[in-house]
Amino acid sequence: CHSECLGNCSQPDDPTKCVACRNFYLDGRCVETCPPPYYHFQDWRCVNFSFCQDLHHKCKNSRRQGCHQYVIHNNKCIPECPSGYTMNSSNLLCTPCLGPCPKVCHLLEGEKTIDSVTSAQELRGCTVINGSLIINIRGGNNLAAELEANLGLIEEISGYLKIRRSYALVSLSFFRKLRLIRGETLEIGNYSFYALDNQNLRQLWDWSKHNLTITQGKLFFHYNPKLCLSEIHKMEEVSGTKGRQERNDIALKTNGDQASCENELLKFSYIRTSFDKILLRWEPYWPPDFRDLLGFMLFYKEAPYQNVTEFDGQDACGSNSWTVVDIDPPLRSNDPKSQNHPGWLMRGLKPWTQYAIFVKTLVTFSDERRTYGAKSDIIYVQTDATNPSVPLDPISVSNSSSQIILKWKPPSDPNGNITHYLVFWERQAEDSELFELDYCLKGLKLPSRTWSPPFESEDSQKHNQSEYEDSAGECCSCPKTDSQILKELEESSFRKTFEDYLHNVVFVPRKT
């Protein structure tokens, strides 16, 4: 048989008469490798580009789960590009990614509803959504962080984005990388972005840091009482949809009607710091009717980097990364020049730590249904340095008659930039024990000054392991946590139920 035959053949030295091919099969003959313009397919066939392209389009058009959109890589027609490569849609070739590779997620039936953290986790790592997304989240724990972890990498949506009755959302900033909504599939009414009845939605994105392009379709905003109209108009300008909307697409009466839409800028007039305090004062603000001013709200939190936005980490279910302080308005003076500047002394802060701070007014709604208010920009203030805590785990070892090696770990709280350490030492008198000992005694162990690591005695271990207080009263049991108490109650309830079950099964009433 021919060298490319495997198993047997019907005619000697003829690659077209093989029972099976050793390498690849091409047009009725066995070959060692697939010549151009053919590609290896499933490690035994040679196919042309049209064959591989037909497989790709067949799966793409069917949208069946589990099928493969075949691509070409290293002269092979394979189910998908290997790690580190992405497909070129024009020629199906796998090309190296520039940075992290995109991950295209194809949605069944063309859309997916995100109504819980669990459903959001199914899209973790996706960068391109081939379909439409509907966000409908009523509640949950730590929602802002969970949504950002699972949806934060999405850069492109081919269909539309719909935010509907998501009472738990305060902001859409968890879509931190969303840059493009194509609108290839539109919501009824030709809408590519749809926001309806979101009672706590206050911000779409921080438009000073976020760009969003909507290729096709219109915007729809109705019944978002805490979303200011200025935020919607800003989205029109940034996304390129200005002029597409009709009169009733953006409701003037049901958007922002319960919001404090600040239209003035508060400026800080005085800032002073110490290692654990920050004193702030800002310019006074009074609405047209000074009785509408209820006070100020001061927001602050630790910020290692200057990239904080107002609604980071917030949701309507209680999660809030900001510390909020309510401040009463100052006494009002008739003389504008003698107006008191409101302020606040922030206490209990960490030394040498940068804080993000902003302040906003708290006002009631005027009778004319106009909203007044003022808010400052987010500023960054760093507390002063102070003395560091003591170095940890000092170790001293003498390696000769004239040297001592000293080692330690950095302090747990540096409280500033540590530039150097101060080492103090003092000579001590020799131990009298060394002169009084009889060095001729056998088995004498000389006193040693070398360091030995501390260890816990058996008594201390027994005390720590004991669940009861000892007789001397030195140790006591740790208080039980809520989960331990709940577990004990469940076990007790189970024992009672099981005992009742045994009584009912074992003891049967005697027939009379």
Rank of each mutant, 00 (worst) to 15 (best):
V325G: 02
I278Q: 01
G318K: 07
L362C: 02
V128Q: 01
D326G: 05
V128G: 12
T323P: 01
S321Q: 10
S401M: 04
L294Q: 05
L147T: 02
V104G: 03
N263Y: 03
G343A: 11
P284T: 03
K162A: 02
D315L: 06
E109H: 15
H222E: 10
E122D: 06
H106S: 09
G348P: 13
V170I: 12
L298H: 00
T361Q: 14
P225L: 06
G217L: 01
Q199N: 09
G373F: 03
L186S: 08
Q245I: 09
D393G: 06
D312C: 10
L298M: 10
T353R: 05
K337G: 08
I134E: 05
A259F: 06
W352D: 15
L279S: 07
S274L: 09
F311C: 07
S119E: 11
T371P: 10
R347F: 09
E237T: 12
Y372L: 12
G348S: 12
L133C: 02
K253D: 03
H341Q: 13
P329V: 06
P284R: 08
I327D: 00
D312M: 13
Y355L: 01
S166I: 05
Y305G: 09
D289W: 02
I271S: 03
L169T: 08
K360N: 10
T323S: 07
G183N: 00
C105T: 00
L266E: 00
S400N: 10
E231D: 15
R370V: 09
L227N: 00
L201G: 00
G348H: 07
K226L: 07
N387S: 05
L298W: 01
S166E: 01
C126G: 00
F275Y: 04
M297Q: 15
R291T: 14
N211F: 04
P351G: 12
G183C: 03
D367K: 11
Q258L: 13
S402F: 08
Q121H: 13
E156D: 12
L151A: 04
T386F: 14
W322C: 02
T353P: 00
Y380R: 04
T118R: 09
P411D: 04
Y167C: 13
W344T: 06
L294H: 09
T241H: 10
N263M: 04
S400V: 09
C228M: 02
E283S: 07
D328R: 09
Q306V: 07
M346R: 01
F275N: 04
D393L: 06
A316R: 15
S116N: 14
L204K: 01
Y167M: 15
T215V: 11
G189P: 11
C317G: 08
I357C: 15
P336I: 04
Y285S: 13
I214Q: 03
G125H: 13
K242S: 11
S173H: 13
N198T: 02
N248L: 11
E111G: 15
Y372D: 10
L204H: 01
E231C: 14
P394W: 13
W408K: 00
W205F: 12
L186Y: 04
C126N: 00
D289E: 04
Y380H: 02
S376T: 09
L227F: 01
V238A: 07
R332L: 04
N307M: 04
D393Q: 09
S319R: 12
E231F: 15
D384F: 02
E302Y: 03
Y300Q: 02
K301H: 11
F311S: 08
D312Q: 04
V308S: 09
S396W: 11
R164L: 15
K360F: 02
K301Q: 05
G256I: 03
T383E: 00
L331K: 11
A303I: 13
R165A: 13
T241I: 08
P342T: 12
G343Q: 14
W286K: 08
Q245S: 10
Y194R: 11
N387D: 04
F311M: 07
I163P: 00
Y194V: 13
H210M: 04
Y355E: 00
N399H: 04
G189N: 14
S398K: 01
L143R: 13
T254S: 08
V128H: 14
